[in-house]
Design a protein around this nucleic acid. Structure first.
Lengths: 141, 141
DNA sequence: TGGGTAAATTATAATCATTCTAAATAAGCA
DNA sequence: TGCTTATTTAGAATGATTATAATTTACCCA
């Protein structure tokens, strides 16, 4: 049995009920910085927790992202990915292998000017291209 | 009959065949800077061009965005929008009415540092929030 | 100008990620 | 421990997008 204390503490701090699907999904995200989709999360945890359902993974990621514990990212092809890091950074999406990598970026506030009369809740910076690993493989072939 | 000369010229310049669906869809995008989805494009043009099919709208937007004539945008909820403007700018997505507005932004190159070994094909900056019109309506209610 | 060929269009079916539904289960409080 | 309500679950439904295969069209060239 894994140690879910960190996940449990965070859920409690947000006033969320402690349930097994939430612990398992959130702990997986805390441990894996690969920005998985719901499908990938499901297949990664279903061995250790055979009774989990797709619905639960969708429910849990929705709940956690609404609470601000995790980030919901949308890839250039419209797939939803989840990220347990909540400090600001950008994302790089590989067009070949669909991996998602973190980008270090300066504070956005320095150049972002909101549209007059609008309210901004989040800013996203992302890049598309070929990741280092795929670039390397291309040269070989 | 509309004047499709601008659309026709652009298609020719890209070496693309001049077809009615392409002229109609591209001309619509040139005239409407509302960043519509394929569904919205279809419903906007079907009256003037009753025989157009959903497939054609999808095919045409795909072809035009691959050629660089139009931009394919993904909204925070994963919907695909299309934009005939091809100079760099950001986008603001309203969480209430789902409208998409243009954002003026400085040149990204000033702060973007690509991941070592990667190739970047495009950079995207977007913001989420409540647009000016929805903000105004909220205050009234 | 007309015929040939490859490309594009069309209508329809299929796909697939996500959401919905309703019944069963479990969390957390008294 | 029992109660109430939120959560989970399995399966069905949805809906945007993609695939298929037949028809039509664009455009090159004689």
């Amino acid at each position: 049995m894994r140690d879910f204390s960190r996940a449990e503490k965070a859920l409690k701090a947000e006033g969320l009920r402690i349930t097994r699907p939430r612990l398992v999904v959130y702990d997986y995200l805390l441990d894996n910085k690969t920005h998985p989709t719901c499908d990938q999360i499901y297949h990664s945890i279903v061995n250790d927790y055979p009774h989990i359902s797709f619905s639960s993974v969708y429910n849990v990621t929705e709940k956690l992202s609404n609470s601000g514990l995790i980030l919901k990212l949308v890839s250039p092809c419209g797939e939803m990915h989840y990220d347990s890091t909540n400090c600001f950074h950008g994302h790089f999406y590989c067009l070949k292998c669909s991996c998602v990598l973190d980008l270090d970026l300066p504070d956005v506030k320095s150049f972002y000017k909101p549209i007059s009369g609008s309210t901004t809740t989040s800013i996203t910076i992302s890049a598309e291209g070929i990741c280092p690993m795929c670039s390397k493989n291309e040269q070989v072939n």
